[in-house]
């Protein structure tokens, strides 16, 4: 019996995509054209990507790693020639006809999204913080902290105990203030240079596998003409914040994953 196959959708473009370079990344890659759109898809095995198989495989980190990377690479290659609407990992159809029907059904939405995305790029900005380094960076120039430190030197054992506690609280408070300040300022300044911007949820250390804590996870849709200014601002932020316990990580251009939500509220 022939194995059941499914149609895996990577992205939708409004121009005929060049699929030569994608050879070797995935088997049976092709595009389906309907309603003025080109959907880049591939045939996958039902056993692997069907309801049951997908559920099983999503618990297998190695599998997810490999397949998610392929998903990303294919969209990036298509993106080199044309604007794309990237789909979420694991968007599957039973047949090409059902994919075509979807292109009909969502035609207006896709048109609107592609209009918005034209001549723009998605860039990502994540900021990480090393709390100890940050504490060191401000402990020597915060007047209030220095004042308490000075008082501790001339206090009795009992009084200095409370003063130390007060100092620790003040350090924690300042730490949070500095983290919020860095995140907010970075986001707002880059937002000014962007067409649209989003703040995403922070990823815990278990996921980032970094010692430092993520304090900002954001994405920006930037006009190609503004990308230079955008990067100048990122460099400015790096100059200002790196060395003070922050690490600013800017990546891109990405497929505009963050800016083509069908149901996302328009900002």
């Amino acid at each position: 019996m022939a194995k059941q196959q499914l149609v895996y959708l990577y992205c939708v473009a409004d121009r005929e995509p060049e699929l030569k370079e994608t050879e070797g990344l995935a088997d049976n890659l092709y595009f389906v054209c309907n309603n003025g759109f080109y959907a880049v898809a591939g045939k996958v095995e039902e056993e692997e990507f069907g309801q049951e198989g997908l559920k099983r495989n999503m618990a297998d980190f190695e599998w997810v790693k490999a397949k998610a990377s392929v998903h990303e690479r294919i969209i990036e290659l298509v993106m080199a020639d044309t604007d794309v609407i990237p789909f979420k990992f694991g968007t599957l159809f039973n047949t090409n006809d059902s994919l075509k029907a979807m292109l009909d059904q969502y035609g207006e939405e896709f048109k609107a999204i592609l209009r918005k995305l034209a001549h723009k790029q998605e860039w990502g900005l994540k900021i990480y913080c090393n709390p100890e380094k940050l504490k060191t960076s401000f402990s020597n120039d915060e007047a209030e902290i220095l004042k308490i430190e000075n008082e501790i030197k001339f206090s009795s054992v009992g009084k200095s105990y409370f003063l130390k506690k007060k100092k620790d609280e003040l350090i924690e408070k300042t730490l949070n203030e500095r983290i919020n300040e860095c995140g907010q300022e970075s986001f707002e300044l880059l937002k000014e240079l962007s067409f649209e911007a989003h703040i995403n949820r922070l990823l815990p250390r278990e996921v980032t596998e970094r010692e430092d804590e993520m304090v900002l996870n954001s994405a920006f849709l930037v006009d190609r003409d503004e990308v230079g200014d955008f990067h100048n601002m990122v460099d400015t932020l790096k100059m200002h914040y790196e060395g003070k316990g922050f690490l600013i990580d800017c990546t891109g251009p990405w497929p505009p994953y963050n800016f083509c939500g069908l149901s996302r509220e328009k900002v």
């Binding site: 990303e72 995403n200 994953y257």
Partner: peptide
């Protein structure tokens, strides 16, 4: 991480 953060969490969902 950057890839997973996007591919698994974002992108069009229909």
């Amino acid at each position: 991480l950057e890839i997973l953060d996007r591919v698994l969490d974002k992108g069009v969902v229909i």
